[in-house]
Each structure stands twice: as structure tokens, then as C-alpha cells.
Design a protein around this nucleic acid. Sequence first.
RNA 1: GGAGAGAUGGCCGAGUGGUCGAAGGCGCACGCCUGGAAAGUGUGUAACCGCCAAAAGUGGUUCAUGGGUUCGAAUCCCAUUCUCUCCGCCA
Length: 423
Amino acid sequence: MLALQVIRERRQEVIDRLKIKHVDAAELLDQIIRLDDLRRESQQQADELNARSKALAKEIGALFQSGKTEEASRLKEQTGDLKARSREAEAAMEQARRELDTLLVQLPNLPHSSVPPGTTAADNKLVHEEGLIPGLPGTALPHWDLVQRYRIIDFALGTRVTGAGFPVYLGKGARLQRALVNYFLDQALEAGYSEVQPPYLVNAASGFGTGQLPDKDGQMYHIPEDDLYLIPTAEVPVTNLYRDVILNPQDLPIRHVAYSACFRREAGSWGKEVRGLNRLHQFDKVEIVQITRPDHSYAVLEEMREYVAGLLRKLRFPFRIMKLCGADISFASAMTYDMEVYAAAQKRWLEVSSVSNFESFQALRMKLRIRDEAGKMQPAHTLNGSALALPRIVAALLENNQTPGGIRIPEVLVPYTGFDLIS
RNA sequence: GGAGAGAUGGCCGAGUGGUCGAAGGCGCACGCCUGGAAAGUGUGUAACCGCCAAAAGUGGUUCAUGGGUUCGAAUCCCAUUCUCUCCGCCA
């Protein structure tokens, strides 16, 4: 959510910045400002009427207590009209506020001034690339064939039990999952993140706080009976740990890491590019979340990006970092880096992490504030990143490390898997 | 799932119709005291929304949430949510 003050005082700048995200906000902003004017006007009326009612009630009370009942009764007659008018003003104020809120939450976050313009993902800017792309023989197999050959992941079984997009991990495939999760958690712990195990179902207020609701509700699984949502990422429950919280400067930065299963409906995004592990309805992910002072968030974004790059380096992946352009950046984000690894058999770059700074966008939605040294309130900044999402890491790991004798496990993982070869 | 009790400020806790945004305590901040500290002592200590260029000031809202009764509600009534206790069920 954008601050009303920003909308009112820097209307043209907001319009210009949102154009980078291909959103024409001019009309919406005008409606918002008009509703805010209306809200203020109604509030002034209501405040004044309430002040009079309160004064009158006090007077009547005093009269009753001194026994002047008939005088009190006379004053009482005035209250009815006052009350009716105050109710009217309050109702008008409430309605304006509600309408204002529904419009406010439709506005995306402003992209950072360094976000490149662009119309498709092809306009994302390459900011870093490292590692050697392995040359595989012509007999190299994509991961969906490898997992069958070594019987480590079974998509058909998942289809029987649940449906498409819910694979079953078997034997060394299951152990590899567990090893990756533990490795990622341990790495984050070492880097100073504190571990959290969040709920996998969240209420609507949480979905709203991080920006999934109201507009992206079709992407989350919803349980109508209890009005709960399956989390699409641990970002949602972990960031919402701090909903309605006022932090002191010495609490910051807050750094959390959480493993969770993630659930995504992925409505309307199936095609041949999403075979095998490339896109799933349920997958595992380790997520890092930070809450910072506003003036630190971009330094922290770089730090998080470097942390994720370090993981990819240790796992010996060829990878690249893309700075997302206006067309590809998400609704809530001000700046996002995507981390992609090269899957040598598919000959494709696969996104395995997305690291974002939301600035105050989520904090304003969830009333996450900092009371600074001078006692002033300001919204915190929130950031998060995948560190890492498993399925595409597994896909690239299997493809890149295949040999005639089996799939070699990266050295750093061997203490976690307990084996160094899948054969 | 059944029965009962409860929800008050950062925390504990008083408050059953009026002058209560709320006693008292703890915590915290600042001052005094001290060589320094502790103890003692004094003062202060919520958020949100208006008005005002802003500060000061000032009006309003908020005692779980939403409604209701009343001139007036933390206090009475109803609904919802959550917590606790007992019973049932259960990994």
C-alpha cells in the first residue's frame, strides 16, 4: 500500500513511476484523493457533532446530580437530533474510508528508480553471470527422464494420489530433498538468520498483509469452510509474524529463515515449458525474510542477493542474476533480483530464487512500524528471498551432474545426503 | 465437540452507568542525590484520524471485534473471535 500522503503530495511522480509497471493510475489516484477529501470533510462534521453531544451529556449529568431534573429533561430533547446527524456523518466517513481502502490496495508498489523499463521478461537486465556451462554429451537426459531411470521422483504416483503437479519423492530422491532443506537452513543459521517454523495455512488478514490478497487470491488454495489459505511461500506467515507490531530501532534488523512446503494453484500457467519439476503445485522452499530500517533496506537487498549467490556458488551451479524490469516485477515489489541456474540438458536458465525489497509497501498494509530514537513512528521496510526453492535446484543438479555411472552429488551436500552418487 | 470462566495501556492489575484514555505497581526515559552505581526521590511515559504551513495547541476515535440500550458505556444486552479450566476425542 502506498501512503496517502505520498499520493496527495506527489501525484504526478506516482503516475510516472507506475507507468514503468505499465499501470495507468491517474484516474485511480484522482478517485482516491476525492474520497480522502470526502472522508476528511465527513470527519470534521462528525467530530464537531460528537464534541457537542459529549458536552451536552456532561451538562445533563451534572444537572441530574444536582437534582435539576426538569432542566435536564429539557436538554435531553436536543440530543436526538444531534445524535442522528452525527450518525449520518460517521456513516459517510466510514463509507468513504471503506471505498478508499478498496482503491488503495489496488495500487501496486512504486518501482525503484533504477528498475529498467521493459515490456517482457526479455527486458530484464543481466547484472551478473558466473560459472562454466557444462558440456554434456548428446546422450544427456533432461531431469524428467533421469528421475525415472533412477526411480527417485514419480510424477504418475503423485497424479494418482492427488493430481498433476504433486510429485512423490522416493528413496534417494526423498533423501536429497531433506538434505537440501537442512543444508539451506544450516547455511542461513550460520549467516545469522534465526529459524522459524510457520503455519502452512494463513488467514485472510495475513494474505492481505503481504499483498497476495485481494487481487491474487486465485493463485492460492483456499479452504472455504475455515476461510484459510495454503501458503504460496513462507514469506506470508513469517512476515505477518510482525503484523500490528511496533519495533524499536535496537530490534533491527530482524532476520528469519524458514523452511516450508509451498502451495500454488498456478492457474493458467501450464505449457510445455513447465514439464517435470519446472512448475509444481506443491514444492519445498527455504525462505529468508528481513525487516529493516528504511535507510538500510537497499544495502540489505544486496547482502541477501550475495548470500543467495554464495549458495549457488557452493553448489557449483553456473548462474546468473537478473534485475527485473518494470513488466516482470511483482505487484508488491520495489526491486527484485531473480537468480537463475543453468540446466544443461534442457539448455535453459531456471529461476531458483527471487530476492525483493518491498520497501514500506507490506509494512503499511500490515501496520508494521518502527518507533525511532526521537519517538516518531515510521513504517519498516520488508525484504525476502528464496534461499532456495528446491524443485528447479534439483532439476539442474540432476541434469548438470549426470555421468554414465550415475548422478554425482555436489561435495557440500554429501555430509547431508550420506551418499555421493545416485545410480 | 460439551460445560464454565475470562479478554483493560509495553507488562501486572484496579475499575459494575457520568467528571475514566482509565487508579496503583512494574518497566522505560529524563532530572535530583552519588566519586560512580544501587537504593531513594521528582517528572514524564499509548495509538490512530482531523484542524493548523509546522511545532505548540486543539477536536474526535480506540478498554478483543462488531452491533444494541442510554442524554451518557471499560462498566448493561446480543453476536463473533480468541484465551484459560474441566470433560470428550486424538498425533
